[in-house]
């Protein structure tokens, strides 16, 4: 097992190198003045500045491989560079934006996985009955609905009309309390978790209230995949002979489903669920933007739009790491769930 994990981790540098070469390849297509666009966002910034000096200062005229190796050398010295769009070092941008993204991803992962499995199981058990049709339609609508449409719609209804669930992280009074009172200690930057650690119910409920909509929207648009995989896997399992044997033994249907069918049907679901959560980080770009949540996704989107290379490379580094680790966890989970699978 350990050897397997090490082997998989060794893939990481290869994946990252490939991604960086791709990004730098695209970057090399830009001329130095286009690259300078990152530093001159408005033309009036050239009031008293020579753009050629700027190009020289940042080495934007250097060949891409020179720029690439310069960056690699900096990274090896622990410096990921300056994020122009976040106006802070890339490493600081991670520190600032990661907790928000982790918070949203963590809270979303639970309903996405459990809700998807539950819907899939329900659909399979009640195959071709109205509840099966209804749950499939429900999930497919979510799958077809672009996140920004679902998000805006939800925001309009639950905040615009009913004023229940606002965007952002915290309400004004709670935010002022958290940041200025000195009574609330930030341990992790994940507000809900910090509220629990501070034993502060007021902050927790306010933060949770702000998370309901983005979590619901993310869950709804993600359910279809897990639901469909669970459903088909369940249906296949339910047709197996050992299920017939279990039924023939006179076991109650609930026990047949829970103990015998679901556990086996969950094998492919584990793969999909693991990757869904990993890819959730990418899906947060739109959700974070719509719900005004300052997370990694929003930052990365802005970096891509402005070709902020240090930010993009930093984000890619993080994302590649995340995907490789997620794959690894899925493989390990697979072995745990199904003893027939041997990683060695």
């Amino acid at each position: 097992m350990v050897a397997y994990i090490i082997r998989r981790l060794l893939i990481l540098p290869l994946v990252i190198t490939g991604l960086f070469i791709l990004i730098f390849g695209l970057y090399s297509l830009l001329d130095p003045y286009e690259k300078a666009g990152l530093y001159v966002r408005d033309i009036t910034e050239l009031k008293n500045r020579d753009i050629n000096e700027l190009i020289e200062q940042y080495g934007l005229n250097d060949p891409p491989w020179v720029q690439f190796f310069r960056w690699v050398s900096e990274v090896l010295h622990g410096n990921l560079g300056w994020s122009e769009v976040a106006n802070r070092p890339v490493i600081d941008a991670f520190k600032r934006f990661l907790p928000q993204t982790v918070e949203l991803a963590l809270w979303s992962a639970i309903p996405i996985v459990l809700g998807g499995i539950w819907l899939g199981q329900l659909s399979a058990v009640k195959q071709n009955k109205p509840i099966d049709h209804a749950s499939r339609v429900f999930a497919v609508v979510g799958w077809s609905l672009p996140t920004y449409v679902a998000g805006l719609l939800a925001l309009f209804i639950f905040y615009g009309i009913f004023k229940w669930l606002p965007p952002g992280r915290l309400s004004t009074d709670v935010s002022l309390y958290v940041s200025l009172s000195g009574e609330f200690k930030m341990y992790t930057g994940i507000i809900t978790l910090d509220a629990i650690l501070n034993w502060n119910w007021w902050v927790f409920t306010d933060a949770a209230r702000h998370l309901i909509l983005p979590v619901l929207v993310l869950s709804y648009v993600s359910w279809a995949l897990i639901m469909r995989v669970t459903r088909s896997s369940m249906l296949e399992t339910l047709r197996q002979e050992y299920i017939m044997t279990a039924r023939a033994k006179g076991l109650p249907e609930k026990v047949v489903i829970k103990r015998h069918a679901r556990r086996n049907a969950l094998l492919p679901v584990a793969t999909i669920a693991g990757l869904t959560i990993a890819f959730l980080f990418n899906g947060l770009v739109i959700t974070e933007t719509i719900f005004d949540l300052p997370g990694l996704g929003r930052w990365a989107a802005e970096a891509a739009r402005q070709f902020d290379i240090p930010s993009l490379l930093g984000y890619l580094l993080f994302n590649s790491f995340l995907i490789v680790i997620a794959n690894l966890i899925v493989d390990i989970l697979y072995a745990v769930i199904d003893p027939r699978v041997r990683l060695e």
């Binding site: 003045y33 300078a36 666009g37 050239l46 402005q306």
Partner: peptide, 12 residues
């Protein structure tokens, strides 16, 4: 065109 392309064409 994207802003950075516009800037590049403008200053040249």
């Amino acid at each position: 065109v994207p802003w950075n392309t516009y800037l590049s064409l403008l200053v040249t």
